[in-house]
């Protein structure tokens, strides 16, 4: 049994392994980062820390998150803090991690971010790897030109 944070992203329930979760916050103002990839919504401050805000919907290749979305899961990757936007948060609970059902074909970003399944009272929830949502260092200089 492992501890998972149950959240809703784009209307779907997901399970986030709690070892990836630094904290859960409601973000303040977000400052845009012009020319950054679209999944970077901007920067926001949490105490003296600057968070890079990830538009989870865009990162997954589906609908962008609504502008009003403020709730975020904070995760730390390679020394940087990211705020991953979520629709809502449900619960923290222990579940048995299951492998992805054979034959299940995930589309868009779900495929790269999905790590497995948990069974929540009969509902299967996708286990999400937050690191897979964070854009890497791939150059996008062409986009700016």
């Amino acid at each position: 049994m492992e501890l998972y944070l149950i959240a809703h992203i784009a209307g779907r329930g997901v399970a986030i392994p709690t070892e990836q979760v630094d904290s859960v916050v409601d973000l303040g103002d977000v400052v845009a980062v012009p020319c950054a990839v679209s999944s970077v919504r901007g920067l926001s401050a949490l105490r003296s820390r600057v968070l890079t805000v990830i538009d989870t919907g865009t990162a997954l290749g589906i609908e962008p998150m609504p502008d009003s979305c403020r709730r975020a899961v904070i995760t730390r990757i390679d020394g940087h803090h990211y705020a991953v936007l979520v629709d809502s948060l449900d619960d923290v609970a222990r579940y048995e991690p299951l492998s992805l059902s054979s034959g299940l074909s995930l589309q868009h970003g779900w495929a790269s971010a999905g790590r497995g399944l948990v069974d929540r009272d009969g509902d299967p929830l996708l286990v999400l790897d937050l690191a897979a949502l964070v854009p890497g260092t791939h150059k996008i200089s062409a986009a700016a030109a």
Binding site: V33, A36, L43, A45, V50, T52, H80, P135, T137, S141
Partner: peptide
């Protein structure tokens, strides 16, 4: 402070500050 890789990848910024 250094900004996240996705921000630095734009090539426009030298860092971020609060």
């Amino acid at each position: 402070k250094p900004a996240a890789p996705a921000v630095m990848a734009t090539g426009l910024y030298a860092g971020q500050s609060l």
